[in-house]
């Protein structure tokens, strides 16, 4: 379980004829347990793609399918991690993580067991009774990731999840996410404008063009990563130093720069 398919998806905001055309003919298939990152210039509609999978936005043309069924409304089978964390500030860390499980009518004992497990997984054991405002940004995003992961969702949707964090915290969280993906692989749709982040995390990187947004190119990272044994390196900076990594990064950069140059004319 956990495939995502975009089939000729279009999105117009406002009136169908005079409105703002955000997406045009987006097609992308994400397989089970695959990690796909979408990169693109700001305003290209990449977040809209994610929001359509989440069920926050409808499509104007085409189809968005999750497990071969069209998306109708938001639901716990598609957990979202937001850029601004979107935790419930009036609930403790434990209550935040537990909330989705309560909605799924999971019993108290089972809930306590799952929450304890995910607190441990995200190194949050000592913060279970803290309120979000007492935590740093990185810690808050750990809570948000735990809140999504604990639901055992078919797909995980991450909308620039590390965009609001400082550079050092960001690196720690990226390593953390790679570790998490190894322990507990998921279908992930990851939105970012940071090219290095996309190459480091994803199996494939989809590059979007500017207005109206469409998928311009899909780069296979996984083949290179396995062939060049990136996983043998514990630290992100060692991976980023590898020639194969630099090569892929540069290729995506060039593709994105073409976009900006076209706008310049």
């Amino acid at each position: 379980m956990g495939s995502i398919r975009f089939e000729g998806v279009g999105k117009v905001f406002g009136n169908a004829r005079t409105g703002f055309k955000a997406l045009d003919d987006v097609s992308l298939a994400i397989g089970e347990k695959e990690f796909v990152a979408i990169v693109g210039p700001s305003g290209c509609g990449k977040t809209t793609c994610l929001r359509m999978v989440a069920g926050f936005e409808g499509v104007s043309a085409g189809k968005v399918l999750v497990n071969d069924r069209p998306v109708v409304r938001p639901g716990a089978d598609r957990a979202v991690v937001f850029q601004q964390f979107a935790l419930f500030p009036w609930k403790t860390v434990r209550q935040n993580i537990e909330f989705g499980l309560r909605n799924k009518r999971i019993g108290k004992d089972q809930r306590d067991h799952l929450v304890a497990g995910s607190l441990k997984l995200m190194s949050l054991e000592s913060h279970g009774d803290a309120y979000p405002h007492q935590l740093s940004g990185g810690m808050q995003q750990r809570v948000a990731i735990a809140r999504a992961y604990v639901l055992d969702p078919d797909v995980l949707l991450m909308d620039e999840p590390f965009g609001a964090l400082d550079a050092q915290t960001r690196v720690v969280m990226q390593e953390e996410l790679v570790r998490l993906a190894r322990v507990n692989p998921r279908t992930v749709l990851f939105i970012t404008h940071a090219v290095e982040e996309a190459v480091y995390l994803a199996d494939r990187v989809a590059i979007m063009s500017r207005r109206p947004g469409t998928i311009k190119e899909i780069i296979d990272v996984k083949t290179v990563r396995l062939a060049e044994r990136w996983d043998g390196h514990e630290r992100i900076e060692d991976v980023m130093d590898l020639e194969s990594f630099v090569h892929l990064r540069t290729r995506i950069w060039k593709s994105l720069r073409e976009e900006k140059a076209e706008i310049g004319h």
Binding site: A54, G55, F56, R73, P74, G75, A76, R78, A79, V80, F82, Q84, A86, L87, F88, F99, G100, N103, K104, R147, L151
Partner: peptide, 12 residues
């Protein structure tokens, strides 16, 4: 986004 988070978590 807090409302969206609640909807995503399947809140009745």
């Amino acid at each position: 986004s807090v409302i969206e988070a609640a909807r995503m978590l399947g809140t009745p």
